[in-house]
Every structure is written in C-alpha cells, then in structure tokens.
Design a protein around this nucleic acid. Structure first.
Lengths: 346, 346
DNA sequence: TTGTACGCGTTATCAA
DNA sequence: TTGATAACGCGTACAA
C-alpha cells in the first residue's frame, strides 16, 4: 500500500501500528470506540509517518466536507472583509474551515464559484450579492447544491435563508439625524438602481423626509458609487449649497460621501457649516477623510457570523429545515461632517 | 445507481445516454477520444440531469485538483487584496480556481490552512508571510505537501520558490526622494523588528542616509504599524520638527504615515512645509489622507500573478523542478506630503 | 474492541 | 471509438 513517493495512507498507518485499517479510521472519527492503548499506538504511527488524512477521500466517503464556502463581491470593501471575519469565527467554532472566493460582483464569477463549491461538496455556501438581477439569474440556473444562505440581500424565505441589513432603517437613521440637526433641504445621492440596498436606503430617506416636513430637493443618480462619482456630484452641488437651496446630503456609500465632501471643501463650501453630509457603510473612507464623515455602520461581522451559523444549522437539519430570514440593524455613527457648525475641523 | 435524492453520478449520465461510464468520463476529460455523435448524446444527458462532476472523486482519482490555495495575512490591507487579484487572474488563465484563506498573521491559522489545503490536494499553495519566525516554524513542521511558493518573503531558494519585493530598494527610493527634495535630518519609523520587510526597508533608509551625507536623527519603533501608532509617533515628533531637528520622515507603512501626518497637522506643523513624510504600500490610506501621502507602491498584482504562475509551473514540472526566487521592484509615488513647500493642500 | 468488505464517484488502462 | 475494470483513500455497517 503506497509506494514511498506518495503520501502515506491510512493503510500505512495501520500496518505500522499493527492494527487494522478500520481501527485507524475509528481513532480518527470515533475515538470512543477504541481502547486508549491502541489509540496511543495509532497516534504514534500517524506522527511517525506525518500522516494527513486525504480530505477528498474523506468527503467522498462521508458525503460532505467540513468546509464552508463564502463568495464575496468585493474584497476592497471593508464591510465584506468584516463579513468574512464573522463567518470564519463561526465556522471555526463549529470546527469547520472557511474558504473565500472573490466574485468582483460579476455574475459569471458568482456562478462559477457557486459551481466550484458545489462540486467540492462543501457543507454550506454563503453567497453575498447586492444585485437583485444576479440573484434572479442564479436562483434559476443552478443544480441542487449544498445549503446556501444569501448575505446582504433579502430573498424570499421560501427559497433560502438570508441575512440582510435593514437598509430602509439605515436610510431613515441617516436622514433623521440630518433633520434632528436642523437640516431641511435634503438631497439623496444614490447609484445604479439595480443595486437593491441602495433603493431601500432611498426609501428610508423619503419616508423621513415626508414625515418630518423637510424638503426632498432631488435625488442624484451617478453612474457608480465611488469617490470619483462623488466628486462629480459634489461639484454639481456647490451652487445649490451657496444659494441655500441644499443644506443636507445623504449619500448611499462612504466613498460617494467622501468624494462629495472633498469637492465641496475644495470649492470653499463649509462642511458641516453650510451643508451636512452623511455616508453609508462605515468604511475606512469615512473616518479617514479630511473631514471624518458621519455614516451608517453595517454589522458586517454579525452578518457573517449569522450566515455561517444558519448554513451550518441547515446542513445539520437536512430535509426538515425551514428557512429563516435574519434582518440586522445598522447604527448611526456621528462624525464631523454633520456636527454643529462650530465643530469645524482644525 | 443513485437514489433520486442524491445528485446524479456519471453512471446515471451513462445510462441515460446509453453509453458506458468510461465514455462519459472521456467526453469530460478527453473530448478528442470520442465521436461527435456520442459526445452530443452525452452532453444532452448531462444537461437533462443537471449533472455536475464530483470534485472530490475527481481529485481522488486524478491525484490532484485544479485549485490553487492562497493564504493571506490581512484582508484589510489592500496590498494583499491586489495579490489575490493577480493570483486569481493567473489561475483562471490556467483554468484553475483560486481559494482564499485569511490567516490574520496568526501562525496557528497559517499552519491550519496549510494543512487544509494539503488535505484537499490542491494543485499548489501560495503562502503569504511577513514574519521570518513564522516561516521558520512552518518550514519545519509540515508534512510534504503540494508545491508551495512563498509570497512577500524571500526564502532560501533551496527550499521553495518565492516572490518578494525588494524592500531595501523601497527604503532607498523613499529616502532618496526626501534627500532629493532637500531634506537632511531624517527619521525612520518602523515597527516590530520581527517583521522582515520592515527591517529591509530600514536598511535601504540607512544606506541612502550614509551615502548622501544626511543625518539619521533616530529610528522610532512603535508597537504596531497602524494609524494610532502613527499618531503617537507624530505627537512625539512635533517638538523636534519645530526646533528644526527633524525635516523628513520615512514610515514603514502608509497607516503609520497617515497617523503621523494627522498628528503633525493637528499640532499646526506644516506638511510638507516643515517636514516631509513618506509612507509605504500605496494603500487607500495614502491617497485618502487629508494630505495625500507620498509612498512606495508594491506591485501586489504582479506578485500574486508571478506566484500563481510559479506554483502551477512547479506542479506541472514535478520532480525535476528547480525553485526560483523572483524579486519584484517597488516604485515611488509622489504626492502632497513631500511636494515642495509651495504645494500645500488647499 | 477489532477486523473485513463494500461503496463513494471518478480517472485511467487495457481489450475489444 | 468504445466498454469493462482496477485503482484512488477513506467511512462504516457488519461480523468476529
């Protein structure tokens, strides 16, 4: 069994320890069924040979592996790094391993990694999407696979578990904060409307605006949600702010907000003196901005953790599992970009 | 073969297509050995059953998988995200899949994921370390495994391939730039001395200092390399700068540099008017700082790409592979924190 | 408590 | 070109 070039197999261990093959397997998977003495012998043999069980053979025989796969849309976004952290912690506690794949928000890659994880027979898959269309495309075209929970996107609970953040609440939080600090002429800066979370944030915005009697001056929809897009938006807002037509901005992402603030201050508009700006995500971009930006923090780690726990629970439950939709709550983080006019940055 | 609950196997496809099992395998792995007509039949059967080959059985039989594993120390550092990107691109071109694991710089996790990848029989492993001690610990205690290439740390070429960046050159680049712009009283801000790359950066620093006749005022060694550490360092430098004892700072990371600049400007010290500051890594922190920070950019994507190519080459070559050590060159990125005194931020 | 034999889904070899 | 069959390394009933 096993020529010297290949890695030692369970048979080599058995031979060296002078026990049967099944016994070695037992010390690995059912230590209780084996006497302390033999367990010891076997352990020594394994150490001598530097034996490492073959995961593929194991998974093949057992039916599923002790790995959880997570598909992330953007590793450059610290939110998703937090998600990975949380998922990993939960997986680790359940004695599982987390494997991360980066989809770059591209549908083709999302489904490719989904396929890869499925073929690997992972115990569960965490799929992080922020685009409704991608979900629709994926929900249709994928063969039955491991338990999958959707992260960051609320989906019909009939189809799968999901963990999402209440984006409408986040929008309300940001907007209410502006209203509470005396702002009345508000602008919402969004992004591509296919991005589900952003649509919900805008809904929260409009809810508060109408309830509070503030004015929804307008919604601006840049092509993207990055700093450069924000810069363009901010430049376009300069005149409105100077004329007193706008005194508050809710941006759908921190990068957007950072760009807006940058453009505004570059034009000598005072933030928050003349206009307050709130971002979203609590990215590094928010606290790292010349004027630290107030923002809505998403519970990334909690999301990852909840996802991993759900998917593992589903893996255990099997057929009689019922899907659950967990909705987490974002929180407001107040910084200089919305403080009172006196709290200018020094 | 296969009760209705489990996924269809290659046997089910064979039965439905009316061919033998081996033939189905051939259309999958050796399409040339099969007639167009049967290939067509089989393809149709696979589609009907939504057949997906089992990766574990595949690698078990074939000996190794078409997956490359990468162990990253810190997903929050954009450098490593770039590395992952490059590795993924190269893997994809070779028709392989990249799996990412996050070690958080913890030795225990580094070796755990190494074990996981080894058990999974991945085609190759990319191990990103920045601590010499961890390398020593790992080089000793790991059973023979898949081809492994070290990223970010130059190791004896006798032991494995590696892709690293010339940190001494980076240190020279940063320091020479300071000297070229008229700075003479220089401080190096490092970090834990077990961090190999940082030691090399400091060596580059001292090389240029002595060659140029500038003064090495001192080296400061904070506990960590983050923004808060930088803030503390910057605060401590205020008096030295005011007194003209220090006019240039080379920091080992951008976060450090950002903290230093932040502390300095908060104390009304002009950057770069009174003191220039250079960072390292070209992180988001560098261009996102109130005063954008000059820095040394690491070729992260190139590093990942080279690593993946090396590891795949080694996997193909087998026994007669000879290790190679690739050393990449960093580049200087000049921004406001070192521009002439007139180029103050507005 | 320990050993035997079979099955997991695939690849690869060899005949036909 | 196609079909039968022996590995691949391990988990697990079942028998001893």
């Amino acid at each position: 069994m096993g020529n010297p070039r290949s890695r030692p197999s369970i048979g080599d261990v058995a031979a060296l320890a002078g026990v049967s093959l099944g016994t070695v397997s037992n010390v690995l998977n059912h230590p209780d069924r084996v006497s302390a003495a033999t367990a010891e012998k076997v352990a020594r043999a394994m150490a001598m040979l530097e034996y490492l069980p073959d995961g593929n053979a194991r998974t093949l025989a057992a039916g599923s592996s002790r790995t959880v796969g997570i598909i992330l849309p953007d590793l450059a976004n610290s939110l998703f790094v937090d998600v990975a952290r949380g998922a990993e912690a939960a997986a680790e506690e359940a004695d599982h391993t987390l494997m991360i794949a980066n989809s770059d928000t591209r549908l083709e890659r999302e489904s490719r990694y989904l396929r890869t994880f499925t073929q690997a027979r992972v115990a569960g898959i965490l799929l992080t999407l922020n685009d409704e269309e991608h979900y629709a495309a994926i929900a249709g075209g994928t063969p039955r696979s491991a338990p999958t929970v959707m992260l960051n996107l609320a989906v019909p609970v009939a189809r799968s578990c999901s963990v999402s953040v209440d984006n409408a609440l986040g929008g309300r939080l940001a907007t209410q904060h502006l209203v509470d600090t005396g702002r009345r002429r508000l602008v919402f800066v969004g992004g591509p409307t296919t991005l589900d979370p952003i649509r919900h944030r805008e809904r929260g915005f409009t809810d508060v605006v109408s309830a509070s009697g503030a004015t929804h001056v307008r919604t601006i929809t840049p092509d993207g949600v990055n700093r450069s897009d924000g810069w363009a938006v901010g430049t376009g807002l300069v005149e409105d702010v100077r004329a007193g037509r706008v005194d508050g901005v809710v941006a759908a992402t921190d990068l957007l907000a950072a760009g807006i603030v940058h453009a505004l201050t570059a034009a000598d508009v005072e933030v928050p003196g003349q206009v307050s700006v709130v971002g979203y995500d609590n990215n590094q971009a928010a606290w790292d901005s010349p004027i630290p930006i107030s923002t809505v923090a998403q519970p990334g780690e909690a999301m990852g953790r909840a996802g991993a726990e759900l998917v593992l629970a589903e893996a255990r439950a099997g057929a009689d599992h019922v899907h659950r939709a967990v909705v987490l709550e974002p929180t407001l983080v107040v910084r200089a970009s919305t403080a009172g006019p006196t709290a200018l940055m020094r």
